[in-house]
Design a protein around this nucleic acid. Structure first.
Lengths: 186, 186
DNA sequence: CGATTTCAGGACCAATCGGTCTATATATAA
DNA sequence: TTATATATAGACCGATTGGTCCTGAAATCG
């Protein structure tokens, strides 16, 4: 039932957890009520499956963009460009399932909290690794610490997702991301 | 009924819009059902009042921290320190009504969307103004553009609110904020 | 073919949703 | 005091919530 999880993910993504009602999920997954409950247990379990899917997709993307065999600064540029693309215009308005979930549920739902924290940690590690490799290649500006700069970049891209809800223009977001990266590289 | 709005704000802040039920609001405001509806119309209107109150508080804080008569870089330090304080530990876990609202409602609720966009715009303007004054005083690093750096800082602090949901340690968040500001000043 | 499994459709459930309204109590004003 | 305004508690409303269960059709399998 992989396709059903993906369709459910799309609904949670667009509407959020609490605002998603069972009929929404039935319509999207094209499952009957009985089948959905037989397959996934309850709404919360299905949500967790959808969230895991969303996280897996994001991780897969990061693993390509920030692949250690790739030129690190080029990788960071592609990584940032991806966020710019996803947080401007209509894409931005749709938002991010992970950030929306972090704000809506992470504080009160331990299962969700663990996943959110794990994702941020994993992202930070990959960005830090790319920055470390850039530093080893003497491509970092003086005084830039990979761990610290990675935390900055993670906050920045997650902030982009928030500000992206106001559907900013692609060009200005790209310029902002470029300006930030330029402070780190030489 | 100013105190009632403030109490309602606290509930929406902790639980989000959809997860807040009428009994929660009645308990918090100590109003009867009839009185609450007579005073505020409906749940959505009360929410808007609470959101406006939250935004007014944030603006008032910013107007002090980034007051034009104040030394701009000192102002930015205080401004960032405030965000660090509010996004670490238990404060961070509680989250931010504005960011949560942006993610939960801004895309589908025009009234909310306008308020969220207006707040980000106002914050960006005040930060940009402080940076401009710093630049005029030759306190900015070479190549730092106030408008662009302001957008970066806005994204950064809103990202802090997201990552803050995982209750990071105060010290590491402060160090991260310091590291970012250090890239902008000379 | 017949037997069995699978699943869609939808009736049904108790609980809760946001919202209205009335009866009662309390406070104010004359 | 009495008259009036105000605000309370809570009954009540239809709609909707997440979740269970039953019936009948379709597909699978011997």
């Amino acid at each position: 039932m992989d396709a059903a999880v993906e369709r459910a993910m799309g609904v949670f993504w667009s509407r959020g957890y609490h605002a998603t009602a069972l009929p929404d999920l039935l319509r999207a997954t094209k499952l009957s009520r009985g089948s959905l409950y037989a397959a996934f247990g309850d709404k919360h379990s299905l949500f967790l499956r959808a969230l895991d899917r969303y996280i897996a997709d994001a991780m897969a993307r990061m693993n390509i963009e920030l692949d250690p065999r790739r030129e690190p600064i080029e990788g960071l540029r592609v990584y940032l460009a991806g966020y710019v693309e996803r947080t401007s215009g209509a894409n931005g308005r749709r938002g991010c399932l992970l950030v929306a979930t972090a704000m809506e549920l992470a504080g009160r739902d331990a299962e969700v909290g663990r996943r959110v924290a794990g994702f941020f940690k994993a992202m930070e590690a990959r960005v830090a690794d790319a920055l470390s490799r850039a530093k080893a290649a003497s491509r970092l500006a003086d005084g830039v610490e990979p761990m610290s700069a990675a935390k900055i970049l993670v906050c920045f891209v997650e902030g982009l997702r928030v500000v992206g809800k106001t559907a900013p223009a692609r060009g200005t977001s790209q310029a902002t991301a470029d300006a930030l990266l330029d402070r780190f590289i030489r």
